[in-house]
């Protein structure tokens, strides 16, 4: 026998659960419908051409895809490296109150609003890049196309650096948790063989934690790809593809942010919706990949 209150409660639970699913479907349906005009009109050309000309209603999103790829890969490499190393530092080199204090400080980075990152990037980081770091890099590494050209300050490098900082808390916190879950007897097995701390970490602990760390990096990458405001403020907003990290560029998220309220024609709006749809699909894909790696951990642990 089921009480009436329980039936009401069940109904309310199912309503909430289905609402979440409906919301998810709504993203596909709304973004799909709204971008229809652009998809039909430009087809594949939308993602492989680089002319973005609202006046003549010709839209190729390649510069934005490129900008998103460059800035988030930069963040993945740089922020990912710093994040994983910080996690190693927290797990193997400090203990007790200092570990929790430092871990807490890095998690606070996640609490800072992205507009504040943007503000800092625009008024502090970009001028420093323009006058100090970029000329210096140009002088010593200028033989690489990455570091050639006029230092603008705002551009791919500024956006990549800001994104590196913004994904740090995600990467550090998740990698730290994964490393803390490496069993103690695995560590001791390595030490008992005469391993140094470094050998224990690089030969045994990191390989053991590999899938978890990759999934942390994937979630960080997802965050970098979708970040809007901070990037919009420091990337320079120029829809062009440049090999140089010093050059201004544009990302998918920032073109939506900058142009959506100004888009006047139907096809212009539709093109921006299509950029949004691509962005949404990308983050879903990164999440799925991250999940597959998490499943990988469950498998390794099941065998131990």
């Amino acid at each position: 026998m089921k009480r009436r209150s329980d039936r009401v409660l069940d109904g309310w639970l199912w309503f909430a659960a289905l609402l979440a699913l409906a919301l998810f479907m709504a993203f596909f349906i709304m973004l799909g419908t709204e971008s229809r005009a652009s998809v039909l009109r430009f087809g594949w050309r939308f993602v492989v051409t680089s002319v973005w000309d609202p006046v003549h209603s010709v839209f190729g999103a390649l510069p934005f895809l490129y900008g998103t790829a460059v800035t988030s890969l930069f963040a993945l490499v740089f922020g990912g490296l710093v994040g994983v190393c910080t996690a190693v530092f927290l797990v193997y080199f400090v203990r007790g109150w200092f570990r929790s204090w430092l871990g807490g400080a890095i998690e606070l980075l996640a609490a800072i609003p992205s507009v504040v990152y943007g503000l800092w990037g625009l008024f502090v980081l970009a001028p420093w890049l323009q006058h100090t770091l970029e000329p210096w890099l140009g002088r010593w590494l200028g033989f690489l196309p990455l570091f050639q050209g006029v230092p603008y300050g705002v551009g791919y490098l500024a956006a990549g650096l800001i994104l590196s900082v913004m994904i740090l808390p995600t990467v550090t916190a998740l990698s730290r948790d994964v490393l803390l879950a490496v069993p103690r007897d695995i560590h001791e097995g390595a030490l008992a063989l005469g391993a140094t701390t470094q050998e224990m970490i690089t030969h045994v602990a990191l390989p053991y934690a590999r899938s978890g760390i990759i999934s942390a990096l994937m979630l960080g990458l997802g965050r970098a790809v979708g970040e809007t405001i901070a990037v919009t403020m420091v990337i320079g907003n120029r829809p062009e593809i440049s090999a140089s990290l010093f050059a201004p560029g544009y990302t998918m998220a920032s073109v939506i942010a900058n142009e959506f309220t100004e888009a006047t024609t139907h096809v212009y709006l539709s093109a921006l919706y299509e950029v949004g749809l691509l962005l949404f699909l990308l983050t879903v894909a990164f999440y799925v990949v991250a999940r597959l790696f998490i499943r990988g951990i469950a498998k390794t642990e099941g065998n131990v």
Binding site: L193, G194, T300
Partner: peptide, 29 residues
């Protein structure tokens, strides 16, 4: 620890490595 080897209560081979690599790791160190 190189002069004194140790075997633990629960078998703890390194799960990410092959049989060969498990035995060879100490030598590589």
């Amino acid at each position: 620890r190189r002069t004194i080897g140790m075997v633990f209560q629960r078998p703890n081979p390194f799960p990410t490595m092959s049989i060969f690599d498990n035995v060879a790791l100490g030598l590589k160190f």
